[in-house]
């Protein structure tokens, strides 16, 4: 299954699941990344990390390894 870390610019996808193995997963869900939500990759910082996604009307920056726990359809 693909993860948010593999998204391309401008690609809008729906979150399928959030991997709770990752210690940051609780905060990722609390901040708005929940299954069923649409996300879009907005920016990737210099050095390819962190990445910024739009979710629920705001922009959230996450590290690449944290974006990996957001599974997409």
């Amino acid at each position: 299954m693909r993860t948010a870390a593999e998204l391309k610019f401008g690609e809008k996808v729906i979150i399928n699941d959030v991997d709770t193995e990752h210690p940051s997963s609780r905060r990722i869900m609390e901040i708005g990344f929940t299954p069923g939500q649409e996300i879009e990759l907005i920016n990737i910082s210099a050095f390819n990390d962190p990445m910024a996604f739009s979710v629920r009307g705001t922009i959230i920056a996450l590290r690449r390894n944290e974006a990996h726990c957001i599974k997409i359809m």
Binding site: S24, I28, I59, A61, L62, E66
Partner: peptide
């Protein structure tokens, strides 16, 4: 020692 994380609203 604990989890290193960067989650920030822009």
């Amino acid at each position: 020692e604990d989890n290193s994380s960067f989650i920030l609203e822009l």
